[in-house]
Simulated scan of single mutants.
Amino acid sequence: MYMENTPQVSRLHIALIGRRNAGKSSLLNAWVGQDVAVVSDVAGTTTDAVRKAVELPGLGACVLLDTPGFDDTDRQLGRLRIERMQTAVEQADIVVVVASGVDLTEEEREWTVSLRRKGTPWMLALGKADTIADAEQEAERMGRELKVPAVAVSAWKRTGLDRLTALLLQLLPPDFGEETITGSLAKEGDRVLLVMPQDKEAPKGRLILPQVQTIRELLDKRCIAVCCTPDKMGEALASFHKSPELIITDSQVFPQVFRQKPADSRLTSFSVLFAAYKGDGRVLRRGAESISLLTEHSRVLIAEACAHVPAGEDIGRVKLPRLLRKRIGEGLQISFVSGRDFPQDLSPYQLVIHCGACMFNRRYVLERIRRAEEQGVPITNYGMAIAHLTGILHQIDFG
């Protein structure tokens, strides 16, 4: 039951990549015991990443990603399909390269080099093993040459699947799943006040995901969690017999909460917490400090993880741009992307400001941070940017 309720962003993401008709979709179906992906002898049947949440022995709650072939040559859709495959790879904690034969093609070799360069854990699966003589020996040979785990698999005969799972367990990042949202900021017995505005961006009758996940973690840590809206913060503080050890709030009400905060209480925000939980807090903090270098001729990219329709005083589309232009000038150019749309080339921008990324897994956020760093473009997130713009970045606790 727990697996069914595990958010996709908290699961181990495993991507299957390879040439068209290498057997990726058949392997996925055999692995999960269901017809999840469409299988056909026609090359290019898989046109978008197919996702399946599963429970794998030893690995726990996972998301398996079946991807389009990276050798797609269709003039109109091929480029788009390959981009979708690349996005799936960026999200993957582990990649399985499904080989189409005993001798790797040029495209297959190029992808193995790319995975090594990015530091992505990966392994080789020799697909359609039932059609290859001495498939197990060939897989072992290929693995030795590539210096990665390798296995021969047959979706038709359902062989090699247990071995595939066992090898993936060896590739599991040692610290996977050990990150916590509140880190060292909260421990058992601490009193934590959560100040949470419930505006138009909060779905009626529900809490947004960062709030839900943070509250659950505080309960798991055996903390005493008290929740209120900003207008009730004074009354909530009065209910404590002494100051709470920690106050967590929303970035957009930082200044209001900071003014009421007891001097001996630490203050942070959901967005700041998620900066370290999902990415690299130190890099994102440096990015916030680079706001001071922007001019009216600068360009800023604001990236949102969820593709929602902006409503009212949207923090990313309205409030943050307003704060930036008030500080930098009305001539500041601001662009927006949402969901999995994120430019490969970030060089036109002097700063990237990302949301808290509660809808993305950690690997995907780190890949975006890596891309920005490689191109020399500062990157930060909503919470840190707002803390800098309101002059309290140095007074925020980062864990």
Results as ranks from 00 to 15, higher is better:
I94Q: 01
I94L: 09
I94P: 05
I94G: 03
V95R: 03
V95W: 08
V95T: 13
V95A: 03
V95M: 10
V95G: 01
V96T: 11
V96Y: 03
V96D: 08
V97P: 00
V97S: 02
V97F: 01
V98C: 02
V98R: 01
V98S: 03
A99W: 05
A99K: 02
A99Q: 02
A99P: 05
S100Y: 03
S100H: 08
S100E: 14
S100R: 03
S100N: 11
G101E: 12
G101D: 15
V102G: 03
V102E: 09
V102H: 01
D103V: 08
D103F: 02
L104C: 01
L104M: 11
T105R: 04
T105L: 06
T105C: 05
E106K: 00
E106H: 00
E106Q: 03
E106S: 04
E107Q: 03
E107R: 04
E107D: 07
E107N: 06
E107V: 07
E107T: 05
E108L: 06
E108T: 01
E108P: 02
E108K: 04
E108F: 01
R109E: 13
R109N: 08
R109K: 09
E110K: 13
E110V: 00
E110G: 12
E110A: 15
W111D: 03
W111T: 06
W111I: 10
T112C: 12
T112A: 01
T112R: 04
T112K: 00
V113G: 04
V113H: 11
V113Q: 14
V113L: 11
V113E: 14
V113K: 13
S114C: 08
S114T: 09
S114Q: 13
S114W: 05
L115R: 08
L115D: 11
L115Q: 10
L115H: 11
L115C: 12
R116P: 06
R116Q: 15
R116V: 08
R116D: 14
R117C: 03
R117D: 05
R117F: 06
R117T: 06
K118Y: 07
K118A: 14
K118N: 12
K118M: 11
K118L: 14
G119W: 15
G119C: 13
G119V: 14
T120E: 08
T120L: 06
T120S: 07
T120H: 06
T120F: 04
P121A: 12
P121K: 12
P121E: 09
P121M: 10
W122H: 15
W122Q: 05
W122D: 02
W122S: 07
M123H: 09
M123Q: 12
M123K: 08
L124C: 13
A125S: 10
A125L: 11
A125Y: 06
A125C: 09
A125H: 04
A125G: 08
A125N: 07
L126P: 14
L126T: 15
L126K: 11
L126D: 13
L126N: 14
G127D: 11
G127T: 15
G127F: 14
G127K: 10
G127Y: 14
K128A: 06
K128W: 09
A129V: 09
